[in-house]
Design a protein around this nucleic acid. Structure first.
Lengths: 223, 223
DNA sequence: GTCTATAGATGGATAGAC
DNA sequence: GTCTATCCATCTATAGAC
């Protein structure tokens, strides 16, 4: 990418670091996009380095392995997404004296991934990457998903507090249903729905979709 | 598997055919189980033939390729599943003079896959296979999913007829949400929910889960 | 740190004897 | 139809020169 830098870069460490970081970033961007579009196993390290315009060996040099690269991207993105969700939940708690209504809790869970899917190219890719990694990822990714229940815990607790008369077991199941709704928002599923509805559904209208999802989930939760 | 058959099988075609069919069946069974548990790309033809106790070449001989084998299993299982769903919908229509209520339509959609997941080992495997193939399958599988909207059409039409005052667009989206709930019923997700709820949720109780899902979906639909 | 060349392993598919 | 042996493509990972 940035081959010609300075006439004499040997004694200059700052461009070295810049270049290092630039290579890493290029690999991350290319890998995320390719994984998101084609899936993890269908993409080779060669595909990634070719698209990034860097050397074949850089993936192993910077990340250790292809698996570790996937893991690193997944870790970053999910952390980012869950931070947004946690912030929204926190804000809702502030607004409602620590006891937000079901609708606000569900919105905190649903809104970030949905906005990502509808925002700029970068975040749409990021969201599709997360969904694909969840479905097709390595055993390490699956292990993280299985184990990382801590960020869901707050949502579960909030939901249970918002519906104290509902058996907790029921709240957990309904949370599971809502997560299913969220994770089903994939390109292929949208295409299918588009075909089924004869073009009536438009997933690009994020605001409308968001309202629909929250309405549906809230009704299910208040049943 | 069945090596020693008859002392002289050369002039006997029936055992030949039996053996042929037995080999095919053994490959189908082994492939379905391995794909369901480990995913399509993680399983090699060698793994399949080893588990089936047949020769390495039989996959290509009987099915043409590994991709074609996956496709064949997927085709059979989805046809089987969708037949059950269509039958339930049909029965509901008979019971309600052609206009079944939302709940009966949703039950026809949800009950077959859920009962499979909770019934015998064979059907549990079959259901996990379908879900995995949907997520990780080949392009051919994805193409089928994308194109095969015919069996969903009846459900969409029935739902629209059951809620004539609801804009069809809305009905399509809600159908999409329900499908998301259904396809999220994977081993890994159950495990996660189990951990989150501290063992409170038990997916083995199919009847209870079925009621919960239909309750949730119905409430969302009637909102 | 980059890059080329290559090791080392695996997998899908097939030819050819039986 | 079965089965062994093997071809050939592909991939990850790394050694070693620069």
């Amino acid at each position: 990418m940035t081959d010609a830098l300075s006439p004499d870069a040997a004694d200059d460490t700052v461009p070295e670091l810049d270049r290092d970081a630039a290579t890493k970033a290029a690999v991350l961007t290319a890998a995320e996009r390719l994984f998101a579009v084609h899936g993890f196993r269908a993409v080779s390290v060669r595909d990634i380095t070719a698209e990034a315009g860097v050397n074949l060996a850089s993936v192993n040099y910077h990340f250790g392995s292809k698996d570790a690269l996937l893991f690193e991207i997944f870790r970053r993105r999910t952390a980012e997404l869950n931070r947004e969700r946690a912030r929204m939940l926190h804000e809702a708690e502030d607004r409602h004296a620590g006891r937000p209504p079901v609708r606000a809790i569900l919105a905190a869970l649903i809104e970030p991934p949905l906005r990502w899917a509808g925002r700029g190219e970068r975040q749409r890719i990021a969201m599709q990457f997360i969904i694909r990694a969840r479905n097709e990822g390595t055993e390490a990714v699956r292990e993280v998903i299985r184990g990382d229940v801590s960020h869901l815990r707050r949502f579960a607790d909030a939901l249970i507090a918002a519906r104290p008369e509902l058996p907790p077991e029921e709240a957990y199941w309904r949370l599971h249903f809502v997560l299913g709704m969220i994770h089903n928002n994939r390109f292929a599923e949208f295409d299918r729905l588009h075909a089924l509805s004869d073009g009536l559904t438009r997933e690009s209208d994020v605001e409308a979709l968001l309202k629909r999802m929250v309405d549906f989930a809230e009704a299910g939760f208040l049943a």
